[in-house]
Design a binder for these strands. Structure first.
Lengths: 205, 205
DNA sequence: CGGTCGGTACCGACTAGTCGGTTTGTATAT
DNA sequence: ATATACAAACCGACTAGTCGGTACCGACCG
């Protein structure tokens, strides 16, 4: 049995509620009632409702960033890096799906002060992807004629969009999905030389 | 000079406001004030604030659906179809970027009655993409081992995500972006046979 | 032609209710 | 005694929606 602090209980409750009804579709009263606490308890733990929203954002992006950076650092070949980074994301995703939904759908409602912090982390994440594309072009694994910017956004979009349709008890596992994503992206950007390495390593279907 | 009805003016105003502040970040009072009308005027044209949100959703998805269906019907080879469908979307996108932002970020707030109508159209759109993937597998243009479902969602995600980062006055044109998307997707899913046709038609970079 | 009738388009003060946040109170632990 | 951790009642601000009214326009009539 997991010992759950009030703060964790509030966040868990809020995640479930936000995901289905949206941030503004859920009142603080509803959160505290569902979480089995009170207004006092809530405001004892959080400065405001916005602060709770921020916390949800931050815990997610920080985790993604950490895992992605690790995937980048711990691999040498750009091909290994790309695959590891994709796996890093989808692994986090499996646990944080509720967070990401709130993260992408409700970020317009974050007050500027919070938004800036989140924005920096998102930028850092994007730069990691851009870096690996550049690495791959330099090493001859990826085709030099592709645009780093567009390709980066394509990858991010492809992966992130999963939150709109993936269901944990659906018929597709995250493993299968990631395998396909790897295949699609690698084939889309690799040179002939890169493809040979990817095939050797079974990164493509 | 375009003659603009009150209804159009309200929608235009709401789009700008919603996009930056989110649906719940904007009150009806703010909409009517910005649009230069009144509460009465607003409720004369719209049954409710939700009805306005629905209208924005519907005008966008209906247009996308129409153009995509046309692209599917007017082309024969699956490769032509895929490219035409991508272009159809990105073309609509250029004009409807504000709509799509509201469409994807605020759909949780649509009342069920409206949501169902929208959902059906989205499903129809998805099925068109799935169909063209199946067509391509049958004709030998696309690799049979790829999952139709995952590939479809990958394409939709990749394309839709553009609304998060594309800026009309940015340095990348929609034309360039679409070209890259075509290249990435086609290379990702085509057989050797398909690749030859795509190269002949200059669909790949 | 002027008048008036009816309907549509629009206005803006008003209301009932909801929401985020505060204040006050209380039990426990140190 | 004092701090912590929560509870419950409460408040002011704000919001979506209403409703009685007005301005205008085309149709019909005398």
């Amino acid at each position: 049995m997991v010992v759950q602090s009030l703060k964790e209980r509030i966040i868990e409750t809020a995640l479930d509620l936000f995901r289905h009804k949206g941030y503004h579709g859920v009142s603080v009263d509803e959160i505290v009632e569902t979480a089995g606490t009170s207004k006092g308890g809530f405001y004892h733990k959080f400065k405001s409702k916005d602060a709770l929203l921020y916390e949800i954002h931050d815990v997610f992006i920080s985790k993604v960033l950490k895992e992605t950076r690790k995937a980048y650092d711990e691999n040498d070949s750009p091909i290994d890096k790309v695959c590891a980074m994709l796996y890093a994301f989808t692994n986090v995703f499996d646990v944080y799906q509720r967070h990401i939904t709130v993260f992408y759908d409700e970020s317009a409602y974050l007050p500027a002060e919070y938004k800036n912090i989140i924005k920096e982390k998102r930028t850092e994440y994007r730069k990691l992807i851009e870096q690996v594309i550049e690495d791959g072009k330099n090493s001859g694994h990826f085709r030099p004629e592709i645009s780093t910017t567009i390709t980066t956004m394509a990858i991010i979009g492809l992966v992130n969009w999963t939150y709109k349709w993936y269901r944990q008890n659906g018929s597709l596992t995250m493993e299968q999905i990631t395998l396909h994503f790897n295949d699609l992206i690698l084939r889309g950007i690799m040179t002939e030389f890169g493809l040979q390495e990817a095939q050797k390593k079974n990164y493509v279907l």
